[in-house]
Design a protein around this nucleic acid. Structure first.
Lengths: 124, 124
DNA sequence: CTAAACTTGATAACAATTCTCATTTTATCT
DNA sequence: AGATAAAATGAGAATTGTTATCAAGTTTAG
């Protein structure tokens, strides 16, 4: 990854933003600061920075939503390779929601908890 | 919510599907079973069923991705009202990834953990 | 200083999802 | 059962978020 002024600006702007912004929000901030960085460059760099582990992209299940008829509390695992979604029982972290609620003081109404990696089949 | 044959079909098809499908996947299944349900109807009903708590929509942060310069393990909270994203320390569930890995036998490479509800400000 | 590799901006293309609207179906009230 | 209001449908247009394309500009190693 070569140096680029645009990438540096993007990274700095992201660091100054407490509120984990979307690409669109960042784009607006950049424009207000008279940056001429194009939207394509912004997306490109965010992806690159994320791929290199310098920032983190938060987006649950990549592009599209998945639907689950099981509404009991439980978590999910999506295989990076075959893209199948598996269930994980909520037992792995009892009271997770309660604890998070106690720590933050927020009213937590629900959660999306998605692990990703390789499933047994794809790991061979 | 009134009864509708299409909604019943959609819900049944979802129930028969272990692999938490996307809307597109469901649409293909329905077509193979000679259903004439339109894509708009499918999306409409999935949203309605989710709004009524009958099924669950898994999608981390609704539409668009968010970016975070903090790459240490930690979780997120998004406020349903003001849409701000807050950090939650990973202390609320130490070894979460390890435990999930032990339970499933999968190789877990990462996670996206998003809680949602009302933040302090919006809860007043 | 040069060449190869990388990056950019502008815009077109794309995929997932929602909206619009005329028509049909369902529930409610005599 | 018949009338009517409310809700749901199908088809396709529209919207949104994101990625791809490509010619021109920039960075880096030798």
């Amino acid at each position: 990854m070569n140096y680029s002024k645009q990438r540096e600006t993007i990274l700095n702007t992201l660091k100054e933003n407490v509120v984990h912004p979307t690409a669109e929000y960042l784009y607006d901030v950049l424009k207000k600061e008279n940056s001429t960085i194009s939207l394509a460059t912004l997306y490109r760099n965010l992806n690159q920075l994320a791929e290199n582990g310098i920032i983190k992209k938060i987006d649950g299940l990549e592009s599209s939503s998945h639907y689950d008829h099981n509404t009991h509390e439980h978590y999910h695992f999506i295989c990076d390779k075959c893209k199948k979604v598996y269930d994980i029982s909520a037992n792995v972290a009892p009271d997770l929601v309660k604890k998070a609620q106690d720590e933050t003081g927020f009213t937590i109404k629900g959660s999306d908890i998605v692990f990703h990696g390789l499933c047994k089949d794809c790991n061979k």
